[in-house]
Design a protein around this nucleic acid. Structure first.
Length: 452
RNA sequence: GUGGUUGUAGUUCAGUUGGUUAGAACGCUUGAUUGUGGUUCAAGAGGUCGCCGGUUCAAGUCCGGUCUUCCACCCCA
């Protein structure tokens, strides 16, 4: 016999888990729709060429590759088999991969359907993504992302909408404590220029992103592998406080070397802060200069949402990208998007006990019986009740009534209708309320009303 | 990819320095109750101790490998 098992980092979702997961996705979809986003879906697999090189070296390693069908070794010579490293050999025997996120497939989608899309285009997409990571707390190899993107405009109205979405989603899910962090890649570029660290911008962003986690001393150590001491000291005077306020933006600009990047970042951020103030949006947003985000394609505003004391990093991330579609041959299309991680939202909600909905069954009535004849009567009655849009289930086997009641009880089915010889003769049903145990005899023709 | 950690009944877990027939709770089945669930009581079923190999008179217990769980790093939802 074979052992029933799942690949590492993947999970089954039982009905009670699905009910909660659906609550999360329904909540998010409801908000997305209010802001005019429309759903799309894309395939689980993409061509590897679509995926590779979009998420940095680290991302490439984490892609699940799909072995070519048929004789996948046909195109590989014995010499290549011996000499090749795993990476280059992988490309010869696999030309498809599982998607790593929903943003790159969306960019591909936009380019491919450019003639059918009306820009600016707002889409939401809720599908699983796969990463060949090592699983740990809040990290799975298969997990669900819940994306919303606006593409085809560089207006900050898109950012403002996304910020409002954050506020509404967290409120609706019941989080009273969350932090929406925001920063701007071009502001970071200005910092890099000022500190003469623009030679290795990526290293800079990776380091300062860890400020929260490892503190300035840790960041300093990691920076030292690439940058000079004076540069690091200068960065310290800019970064040391990490979090900055609206007013601090002005002070900050005075510290930074003038550049087009700086101008753009300040313009965007001031516009956003202005809107938030105008509409008096109640959102717990922090401008955080140490927020960098590793994904390579971000070029403007970047977002990250965290739930303090949850034990899980971030539940959402996002940002603006100026040229995601460029690699697919469609230039100068700016977009901005966010992505909620359903699995992490679930874990955090469970951690704080935010799932407080009553245990209830989608089935309202179970019809119980004593023999094949009364069971037939149940099937007939069930059909009538369903035509009234009542969710009914007929117990399938002829078993003791005790067993059938027990089944209803364990499934939290609120009502049981018992039909036997006497009831058939009288055209009635014994309707039992499973919550309080009360039982009444009801005419079969009236049972629908009794339940509604 | 690096380091650590975990695995015993359906589930959560005990199991002494290696030593008879591996336990508990909950769950499950049956009965008390042949037309009535939840509570109670009684009885019963259920384990190749993750898998493979090694040490030993003897392995759930020690050793090696492997898979799995969880955690940290890297990175990220």
């Amino acid at each position: 016999m074979q052992k029933a098992a799942l690949p590492k980092g993947t999970r089954d979702f039982a009905p009670d888990v699905m009910r909660r997961r659906n609550f999360i996705t329904d909540t998010i979809i409801h908000v997305y729709k209010k802001f005019g986003f429309q759903p799309i879906e894309t395939p689980a697999m993409e061509n590897l060429s679509t995926l590779l090189g979009k998420y940095g070296d680290e991302g490439d390693k984490l892609l699940f590759k799909i072995l070519n069908s048929g004789d996948f070794l046909k195109k590989v010579s014995p010499e290549e088999l011996n000499d090749a490293d795993a990476n280059s050999l992988g490309l010869k025997i696999a030309e498809k991969g599982l998607r790593y996120d929903l943003t790159i497939p969306f960019a591909r989608f936009v380019v491919q359907h450019r003639n059918d899309i009306l820009f600016p285009f707002r889409r939401y997409q809720i599908q699983p993504v796969w990463r060949a990571d090592r699983p740990q707390k809040g990290r799975y190899r298969e997990f669900w992302q819940c994306d919303a993107d606006v593409i085809g405009t560089d207006s900050m109205i898109a950012e403002i909408d996304l910020i409002q979405i954050y506020s509404e989603v967290f409120d609706a899910l019941g989080f009273d404590d969350y932090v929406l962090k925001i920063n701007h890649r071009k502001l970071l570029e200005a910092v890099a220029i000022t500190c003469e660290m623009d030679s290795n911008f990526r290293h800079l962003t990776v380091c300062i992103d860890k400020l929260d986690k490892i503190g300035w001393e840790g960041v300093e150590t990691e920076l030292a592998t690439e940058f000079s001491h004076p540069s690091i000291e200068k960065l310290k005077t800019i970064l040391i406080n990490g979090k900055i306020t609206t007013e601090f933006l002005n002070d900050l600009s005075a510290k930074l070397t003038a550049s087009p990047s700086l101008d753009q970042a300040l313009k965007d951020l001031r516009e956003i802060l202005g809107f938030i103030s105008d509409i008096q949006l109640d959102v717990n947003m922090e401008l955080d200069l140490s927020l960098a985000r590793g994904l390579d394609y971000y070029t403007g505003c970047i977002f990250e949402a965290i739930i303090p004391e949850s034990g899980i990093g971030s539940v959402s991330g996002g940002g603006r990208y100026d040229d995601l579609t460029g690699v697919f041959g469609m230039n100068d299309v700016s977009g901005v998007g966010i992505s909620f991680g359903i699995d992490r939202l679930y874990d955090v909600m469970e951690h704080f006990g935010l799932f407080n909905e009553l245990e209830s069954s989608p089935v309202k009535l179970l019809l119980a019986h004593f023999d094949e004849k009364s069971r037939s009567a149940c099937v007939k009655l069930a059909r009538e009740l369903r035509s009234m849009d009542i969710s009914v289930q007929v117990y399938p086997d002829v078993k003791k009534i005790k067993k059938q009641l027990d089944y209803a009880n364990k499934n939290h089915i609120p009502f049981v209708g018992v039909i036997g010889e006497d009831e058939i003769a009288a055209g009635s049903v014994q309707l039992k309320n499973m919550r309080n145990g009360e039982q009444v005899s009801v005419s079969q023709s009236k049972i629908g009303e009794a339940l509604l």
